[in-house]
Amino acid sequence: MATSWFSILFTSLAALALVLMPLPEGVQVHNPQWLLLVVIFWSLYRPAQAGLLYAWVAGLMLDVATNGLLGLNALMFTLTAFLVLSLRQRLGVAPLLSQALLVAGFSLLYLMASLWVEGVATDLASMAAYLSRALSNLAAWPVIYFLLSRLARLAER
């Protein structure tokens, strides 16, 4: 149990570091939402340890790190985690591809909601660029899945 807590904390911090990594402006938009993916993974596979509160704290850290409105990402992370936890039994056994598609769908909802709240992009092109992060999330989900399930197995051995 203790190792599991440690791995959850460690991977969350690593994901936050990946999100905060300085990238060129053009690439930045397509950086997957690593922290969200990690939160989704742990809610799927370690729901006893990583619950809603964990998702909320992770979102709050993202808010603080990006100097955004405090609580916005926390709210979205909580809602996403709630969605994932309610669909957990169906999602947990689904094949990887459909899992990735569903995760991308969740993040698309997430991005649309945050787009609506922040009101940053007004024209269609920048909106599409903003929402295209869902595609990079789609690509990043298998990576997260393999890395974290390997880590979880290692930690529990």
Binding site: Y45, R46, P47, A48, G51, L52, F82, L85, R88, G92
Partner: peptide
């Protein structure tokens, strides 16, 4: 763990 619901 899979068969516990863990419904929030």
């Amino acid at each position: 763990a899979l068969f516990d619901t863990h419904r929030p």
